[in-house]
Design a protein around this nucleic acid. Structure first.
Length: 263
DNA sequence: ATGGTGGCTTTGCCA
C-alpha cells in the first residue's frame, strides 16, 4: 500500500500533473490539500479515469480544500470542523483493514509570529491545540491510523534550509514546533518519513515561488508530513519525497510525499 | 527593511 500526500495548489489547474504523477508512481491513495474548488466543480471524471474510483472531498471556493483519491474503498468519511470554522481543512476515511486516514491542511499562520498582532498565527496555534486535544480524547495509540497533510510546520533543524535564519519565521518558530510536537506525542505518532531519512539530512517538501531559482538556492522547508500510530510502525516499508515535481511547467510549490506500507 | 511569485477572484486575499 502506497499513500501519497500533496499540496496541489489548485486541483483543477494541475489535474494533468496529478494524473502523470499517479501513472508514474502508482500510489493506492492520494491525499490532496489546497484543492481550491467547491465539491460540485471537482474534476471527478478525470480522477476516475486515472484509476481512482473512490473519492472523498471537502472543498470551498478559492481557498483550502482537501481530498482523498483512492483505488481501494473508503468507509466512514468524516469532515471535522476545527476552531469552529467550516473551512475545509480536514477529511478522514477508513481504509480496508480498519486503518483510519486523516488528511489535514493546517493554517499557514500569516507572516508575523505573534498572535497579538496577527490573528492568523493565533488560529494556527489554536488549531494545533485542538488537534492535540481531539486525538487523545477520541482515539487511542492502539488504533491503526495514518495522519498526512500540509501541516505548515517544519519541526526539525534539518527540515529548513537554515535553522538559525528561520527561528522567527512562521513555520519554524519554537512555539509552533512545540505545539506540533505535543500533537505528535499525544498518540505516540511516528514520523514515517524521518523513519527512513536520517534526521541529520536536510529534507524539504516546499520551495517558495518567489525564489529566482528554487533549485539552486534550495531554500526549502519540510511542511508536508506522514505520521502513523504504533500498530502501523512495523508495516512501514519506505518513504519518498519527489523533489523533481517542483520543476517543469506550472509546478505546485509543494511536492508529493509518499510512504509505503506492507500491510 | 523589503520584495520577490502564483492562484483565484477581484482589483485584494491568501499562501
Amino acid at each position: 500500500m502506497r499513500i501519497a500526500t500533496w499540496n496541489i495548489n489548485s486541483v483543477r489547474l494541475r489535474i494533468n500533473r496529478v494524473a502523470e504523477f499517479a501513472k508514474a508512481n502508482d500510489p493506492d491513495v492520494i491525499c490532496l490539500q489546497e484543492t481550491k474548488v467547491m465539491d460540485d466543480l471537482f474534476p471527478l471524471e478525470a480522477v476516475q479515469e486515472m484509476g481512482y474510483p473512490h473519492v472523498a472531498i471537502s472543498g470551498m471556493k478559492s481557498y483550502n480544500g482537501v481530498a482523498i483519491l483512492s483505488r481501494v474503498p473508503l468507509k466512514d468519511v468524516q469532515r471535522q470542523e476545527w476552531c469552529g470554522k467550516s473551512d475545509c481543512r480536514h477529511i478522514s476515511a477508513v481504509l480496508p483493514g480498519g486503518i483510519e486516514l486523516h488528511n489535514f491542511y493546517v493554517p499557514a499562520g500569516g507572516d508575523e509570529p505573534d498572535r497579538e498582532k496577527n490573528e492568523k498565527f493565533g488560529h494556527k496555534l489554536d488549531f494545533l491545540d485542538e488537534m492535540n486535544e481531539w486525538f487523545p480524547a477520541n482515539r487511542t495509540t492502539r488504533k491503526k491510523m495514518v495522519l498526512v497533510g500540509d501541516l505548515n510546520i517544519a519541526p526539525l533543524e534539518t527540515d529548513v534550509w537554515s535553522h538559525k535564519q528561520l527561528l522567527k519565521v512562521v513555520s519554524h518558530t519554537p512555539i509552533e514546533v512545540e505545539k506540533l510536537g505535543n500533537v505528535q506525542d499525544s498518540l505516540n505518532w511516528t514520523d514515517a518519513v524521518r523513519h527512513f531519512i536520517p534526521e541529520d539530512e536536510k529534507l524539504f517538501s516546499w520551495w517558495s515561488y518567489r525564489a529566482r531559482d528554487w533549485d539552486t538556492s534550495d531554500r526549502g522547508r519540510r511542511l508536508d508530513h506522514v505520521w502513523v500510530t504504533p500498530p502501523l510502525k512495523k508495516t512501514l516499508k519506505g518513504a519518498t519525497v519527489l523533489r523533481d515535481q517542483r520543476g517543469g511547467e506550472k509546478p505546485s510549490d509543494h511536492v508529493p510525499v509518499m510512504v509505503d506500507f506492507d500491510l
